[in-house]
């Protein structure tokens, strides 16, 4: 078996005194699209924060491409090739599409290549090329999500972390977003998408994790998990 791109071993984390992760294990192989689903408060976003270096875990290890990255600051994690698309897009709303993208290419490793990356990104998202001079805050919801993903791609990641990419989007737009995610994955970028909404994520992923109360409660092929998730959902009553 090949070395996983991302491996979490018994990750525990807390906000202040409130512990929210209780031993999370993930194993993500190169080129996979993995969905992480679960109800609000399950610890999905917190786990992404730990991976991205935005939150230091209490215990446990995070391995990226065979090296340990837990405890590294966020900017060092970006330099290694991990990019996070935050929940709610969080674009630089008062800046143009182009300025958002150029800031996405801030990392030392990505900066010399950013003209080329910009062309690749515009090829992937033609609408962003057409609207490069427009203020990011004036884009439609779907376009904003595309821009948030494109901004993350500007750092030339090998692992892309998506936090609730379908949030607030119409179903047809969600299909478009995941269509692009599939293309990104085909080009060799590993993708982990966290979603509260089980359907879009598990429909477009090959494999998934179901989380609840800060733990992984189920994992497996997406179709299997979709049924489990449904059972779980009726069980939880959500």
């Amino acid at each position: 078996m090949s070395v996983p791109v991302l491996e979490l071993r018994g990750v525990e984390a807390a906000y202040g005194d409130a512990q929210v992760l209780w031993g999370v294990d993930w194993r993500v192989q190169p080129g996979e699209v993995v969905a992480v689903v679960g109800p609000n408060g399950a610890g999905k976003s917190t786990t992404l924060r730990v991976v991205a270096g935005l939150l230091r875990p209490l215990r446990g290890e995070v391995w990226f491409d065979g090296t340990r990255i837990d405890g590294l600051p966020a900017d060092a994690v970006v330099e290694r090739g991990v990019a996070l698309v935050p929940e709610g897009r969080r674009l630089f709303a008062h800046m143009t599409v182009l300025e958002n993208l150029l800031l996405g290419g801030y990392a030392t490793r990505a900066r010399p290549l950013r003209r080329r990356t910009l062309e690749e990104v515009f090829h992937l998202f033609p609408v962003l090329g057409e609207r490069s001079g427009q203020l990011a805050g004036t884009l439609s919801g779907g376009q904003q999500q595309m821009l948030a993903i494109a901004r993350a791609l500007m750092s030339r990641p090998r692992l892309l972390l998506l936090d609730e990419p379908s949030l607030g989007l119409a179903p047809v737009v969600v299909q478009q977003v995941y269509g692009v995610v599939a293309r990104i994955a085909r080009e060799g970028v590993t993708v982990v998408a966290v979603e509260q909404n089980v359907y879009p994520a598990l429909q477009h992923a090959a494999r998934g994790y179901l989380m609840a109360h800060g733990r992984v409660v189920a994992e497996g092929p997406a179709e299997t998990l979709l049924r489990t998730a449904l059972v779980q959902r009726s069980y939880v009553g959500g």
Binding site: L54, P86, F92, A93, M95, L103, Y106, A152
Partner: peptide
């Protein structure tokens, strides 16, 4: 400068600035 770009990113959204690699 690149330093100025990083500062502006912090001004606009410090948390996101860190996710794009700004210390």
């Amino acid at each position: 400068s690149r330093f100025g770009m990083g500062l502006v990113a912090i001004r606009e959204d410090e948390w996101v600035a860190e996710t794009v690699g700004v210390d």
